[in-house]
């Protein structure tokens, strides 16, 4: 068989590996890190100016004073819970902390999103709810105060 049968495909594989595998992703990274830094670095969540995770990666909490995520979903780190579940958890949080139901309902309502944008299943981001709660009530609820102090310390 002609030697050229192999030189062209070998060179094509190497040249295209450089174009598609290095130049392209590095160019996308340059744009991302240059102009869209917050999202490109994982949409981090801040509490009192300290990073406490990402809004896109769920975190489980041990206390019933905060909104907890589900642990059975495909990724295992689903950051979202359904509004139905959030409202059920709000009742428990209300009983434990005395934060008014109307505040909690408004908090959930303000953060509600829909799986089909305007309809479908209603859901909320649990971390967003928790951060708003801690920021607003760290002087009144013991657990929130502890979290706030720990975060600030470290």
């Amino acid at each position: 068989m002609n030697k050229k049968y192999f030189t062209v495909p070998v060179r094509a594989a190497i040249v295209l590996a450089v174009i598609c595998g290095l130049i392209y992703p590095v160019a996308v990274t340059a744009v991302g890190q240059g102009f869209i830094q917050y999202q490109a670095n994982g949409s981090v969540a801040l509490l009192n100016n300290t990073t406490v995770g990402s809004y896109l990666i769920g975190q489980s909490v041990t206390s019933p004073d905060l909104f907890n995520i589900r642990n059975d979903s495909a990724s295992g780190v689903d950051p979202d819970i359904t509004v139905v579940s959030a409202l059920n958890q709000a009742t428990i949080i209300h009983n434990n902390t005395n934060i008014s139901m109307s505040y909690l309902q408004k908090l959930i309502h303000n953060n509600t999103r829909y799986t089909l944008l305007f309809f479908g299943t209603a859901y909320v981001n649990a971390l967003r709810l928790n951060l708003e709660l801690i920021t607003a009530f760290h002087n009144r609820v013991t657990l929130y105060g502890e979290i706030y102090a720990n975060i600030t310390k470290s």
């Binding site: 490109a40 670095n41 406490v52 909490v61």
Partner: peptide, 19 residues
């Protein structure tokens, strides 16, 4: 990237969560 998918080459980041 604009709607939230990361794009970075600087390594995984370690964070301390609320708990």
């Amino acid at each position: 990237i604009i709607i939230g998918i990361p794009q970075s080459l600087s390594g995984y980041t370690l964070v301390r969560t609320l708990s």
